[in-house]
Design a protein around this nucleic acid. Structure first.
Length: 843
RNA sequence: GCCCCGAUAGCCCAAUGGCAGAGGCAGAGGACUUAAAAUCCUCCCAGUGUGGGUUCGACCCCCACUCGGGGCACCA
């Protein structure tokens, strides 16, 4: 226990009897220091954000709020350590910082736990919230605790309902029958975004299709803006996330072309990205499970064959569908379409390789220039017509469709054109003939928001036999969940709310006839799609957020969270923001100005899990090495967006460094307030350079580099005390104070302890970033390099202000250079004072 | 199959186109110590995945490839 009793003065904090059992790094007693400062901070409240009259410029730092499933783990620790660096940095830089936290508290794990424990999901949820909250406090998260909320609280979810109705009014929330993703294990529907490679993202069960009437949000209305507004985020969000969202939205441009069908009244419109290949269409394929297929088959005599085929493909799961190299199947519908450009008769087939819910659910097949069509043509012995000569082998022979650019052939007026010209030309012609027009399509589908589970926001709609869908009147919100007690929460394919008879049966608000409430609950992603708007107004019970609060704080300046939410949460949040903007409620259209995706904490190269046996428990690590060392290890391990492999980091190395820094604070001999300008210049320069560099590194998210700069300064200060100007030089105090302030971003307990030992009042978190003296950033001497043909031949020390001409002359005067130049001709000399001279010679 | 990102010392990672090494881990030696721990000091190690190109000069820019990670995937 080296330092517990070694003259450390602890004025007011109660002295706790905590025996450290960690002799390995007993340099200073982190457990004692942690217990000492927590109650002090509870009083000082260094992270209470400024109120409306605060004059400082604002910064809104947001960490993705946690789902309360047990205690915090290593991943939380990393995310919150990183968010803390940014929030604490901005506070030191003089900003009015809002750094809130809350809980994403609705969701299936609570419901599953409730079923197992036979109790209300809220009990498990609130227990876990309490545990996580206590852990966050111990982890010294710089949250403003006044703004906390939980999404499962009616005070929060009433605004989900309010927003649902607002969307409903604008036609952005609607119900439709559709074949939806169904997870047989969770017994609920899933949004497209929640299906990963055909599996439920939550439980990895193979997702099946089920025809259901469900609520949707019309996110597709915003597809173009979601895509185009990403220009604002360029350079501020990780490129990877923008790329993933672009892929997900999947905009394509092409043309809709209308085909007359023989013996059928209505023409059929197909969507194609290759209108230039229209002359190469040799057949048409309609999605077998589409409405259109069912219509077209009527009266053709192949109804039963079609029916058999349809039954077979419906039995296939998504997994089967997704299998690559799956042989093409289909059935000829005994009908023909007429190609509008050349009058050719195209046989119409039904197949499952065409998707019912993309484009128009029917395609023109151009087997020569589309691999899928070619595979189908070869399987069904259909003709292949080449219309673009790409110089490659004939697809008829090779079996490989040619998709590149080339010269149009067999295409009437298009012959001789390239792809781009042909597209322009044919689009114009189609338009003139009334046979088509250019068009766009999206991969993005509307957001399915109904869920057949209990622990979520009830959908505020009443179904009346005579009035139809009737919104719950706004003044009756929140529509609170019925008591879980007495309800069977076990998943059974329909919502448990249906069994809450007293709750379900209501009178229609319009006609007062007996009616029924909608029994589904909302996808919990609805909760998180707008929660960042709620923090500034979290205690406002009259509106979801107030204009004044929004003006003060929004948009979020810095969002921090895992890349796992790259599509789902971030896309939905952007969508909500745009909708609310259109409703006149927000004056910005992107919610998160900057985004940082932290990596995962892994062990020995793979994700930590109990079953793998490589789980590292956060609480164990905190116990062994202390909060600061764990935070420091996370931040120092590498760039924040990289994964941290816990087997590569050395928490005990962090403890060692923190002890080293802490020890400096006890060595300082000068008094607080001493004039730093009287300090020794070499150390002062090191201090100011460290401050400057750390500042730059933090701004650019290179926190590991910022820490390295502090380590350097600690080393320099140690040297100054032991073998330099000595502990009483003002420069030493300046350096150690700077170290404490910089360390406060990462290691708050150590920094606070240092700050106190330096004779200051808490809290170091609000000490302010020292002003860098730019005069001290200029080195006394610079080593210039002399190169000949780019190879280093000599070095010389010069003044940093030396001119190009002087440096060049000095370089040429060096004996080593002079002799190296003998017998060669100087072609040119490139000089960049004070760093380099490169002499280009011809020898 | 298509797209994106990465590759620097035994390991984790730094280097506005200008001295490849800031920092750390691990390792070696030394000082202090009766000894150990702790502490302090010193040292060791790569020429930047491969092959080309641009440039006075390339870890950095361009092209091709190898390997690793990620995303999308019958979206017409």
């Amino acid at each position: 226990m080296a330092c517990r009793g070694s003259g450390v003065q602890i004025p007011s904090a109660p002295r706790m009897d905590i025996e450290s059992t960690h002799d390995a790094h007993a340099a200073y007693d982190f457990a004692y220091v942690q217990e000492k400062w927590l109650p002090v901070w509870d009083q000082v409240q260094p992270f209470k954000s400024g109120r409306t009259d605060d004059k400082r410029p604002k910064k809104y730092v947001l960490d993705m709020f946690p789902y309360p499933s047990g205690d915090l783990h290593m991943g939380h620790a990393e995310a919150y350590a990183l968010g803390d660096v940014i929030a604490r940095y901005w506070i030191q830089k003089g900003f009015n910082v809002l750094h809130p936290i809350g809980w994403d508290a609705f969701g299936l794990p609570a419901e599953n736990a409730a079923i197992k424990r036979n109790e209300d999901p809220k009990i498990w949820t609130y227990e876990n919230i309490a545990v996580q909250k206590a852990s966050m406090r111990r982890f010294a998260c710089s949250f403003d605790w006044d703004r906390v909320f939980n999404t499962c609280d009616p005070h929060y979810y009433r605004w989900n309902q309010w927003l649902f109705l607002a969307l409903y009014e604008r036609g952005l929330a609607y119900r439709k029958d559709s074949a939806v993703n169904w997870c047989p294990d969770c017994q609920t529907v899933l949004a497209n975004e929640q299906v990963v490679a055909g599996l439920c993202e939550r439980c990895d069960t193979a997702v099946t299709k089920k025809k259901l009437n469900q609520w949707y949000f019309k996110i597709t209305d915003y597809a173009d803006r979601l895509l185009d507004d990403m220009a604002q985020l360029e350079g501020k969000w990780p490129e990877k996330v923008l790329m993933m969202q672009r892929n997900w939205i999947g905009r394509s441009t092409g043309a809709n072309v209308s085909f007359v069908i023989e013996g059928h009244k209505e023409p059929v419109t197909v969507y194609t990205t290759r209108p230039d290949t229209l002359f190469g269409a040799t057949f048409m394929v309609v999605a077998a499970d589409s409405e259109l297929a069912a219509q077209l088959v009527v009266g053709t005599g192949v109804e039963s064959e079609f029916g058999t085929y349809l039954g077979k493909i419906k039995a296939d799961s998504d997994i089967d569908r997704l299998a690559t190299d799956r042989p093409k199947t289909g059935v000829f519908l005994n009908r023909f379409a007429i190609n509008p450009v050349n009058g050719a008769k195209l046989p119409i087939w039904a197949s499952d390789y065409v998707l019912a819910d993309y484009g128009t659910g029917v395609i023109m097949a151009v087997p020569a220039h589309d691999q899928r069509d070619l595979d189908f043509a070869r399987a069904m012995k259909l003709p292949v017509t080449v219309v673009v000569d790409t110089g490659e082998e004939d697809p008829n022979v090779s079996g490989v469709a040619t998709v590149g650019d080339g010269t149009l052939i067999n295409s009437g007026a298009l012959n001789g054109m390239n792809k781009a010209d042909a597209i322009t030309s044919i689009n114009a012609q189609l338009e003139a003939d009334g046979a088509g027009h250019s068009a766009r399509n999206y991969r993005l589908r509307d957001w399915l928001v109904s869920r057949q589970r209990y622990w979520g926001t009830p959908i505020p709609i009443i179904h009346c036999p005579s009035c139809g869908e009737v919104p719950v009147p706004i003044d009756q919100l929140p529509l609170v969940l019925p008591q879980a007690e007495g309800l069977d929460l076990k998943p059974k394919g329909s919502s448990p709310l249906g069994a809450a008879t007293d709750w379900v049966n209501v009178l229609c608000p319009k006609c007062s006839a007996p009616a029924k409430r909608d029994t589904d609950t909302m996808d919990t992603f609805v909760d998180s799609s707008w929660y960042y708007l709620r923090y500034p107004s979290s205690t406002n019970h009259d509106e979801p957020f107030s204009k004044g609060d929004l003006q003060t704080w929004l948009p979020v300046d810095q969002y921090v969270g895992g890349v796992t939410h790259a599509i789902l949460h971030l896309l939905y949040s952007r969508f909500f923001t745009k909708v609310l903007h259109d409703m006149g409620m927000l004056d910005f259209n992107e919610p998160f100005t900057r985004l940082l995706n932290q990596g995962m904490v892994v062990m020995d190269g793979s994700a930590m899990s109990k079953s793998r046996g490589n789980l590292v428990r956060l609480s164990d690590e905190l116990e062994r090495h202390g909060v600061d060392a764990i935070r420091l290890s996370m931040v120092f391990a590498g760039p924040p967006e990289d994964d941290v492999d816990w087997s590569d980091v050395s928490p005990s190395g962090s403890v060692k460094f923190l002890s080293r820094a802490w020890r400096l604070s006890g060595d300082v001999k000068s008094a607080p307030g001493v004039d730093f300008t009287k300090g020794e210049t070499t150390l002062r320069k090191a201090t100011h350079k460290a401050l400057h560099d750390a500042d730059f590194a933090v701004e650019s998210f290179r926190f590991n580099v910022a820490v390295a700069r502090v380590m350097e300064l600690v080393n320099a200060t140690r040297k100054a005390i032991d073998s330099g100007p000595g502990a009483s030089d003002p420069a030493v105090r300046e350096a150690v104070e700077a170290i404490a302030i910089m360390l406060s971003l990462v290691a708050p307990f150590t920094a606070e302890e240092m700050w106190e030992r330096l004779g200051h009042q808490p809290s170091v978190a609000r000490a302010g970033w020292p002003v860098v003296d730019s005069k001290l950033l200029v080195a006394d001497v610079v080593t210039a390099v002399v190169q000949i043909n780019g190879k280093i031949k000599d070095r010389l020390d010069v003044e940093p202000t030396i001119s190009d001409a002087d440096l060049e002359a000095a370089a040429l005067a060096r004996p080593a250079i002079a002799s190296a130049l003998v017998g060669s001709t100087i072609i040119k000399i490139i000089t960049r004072a004070p760093k380099i001279v490169n002499i280009v010679i011809n020898s």
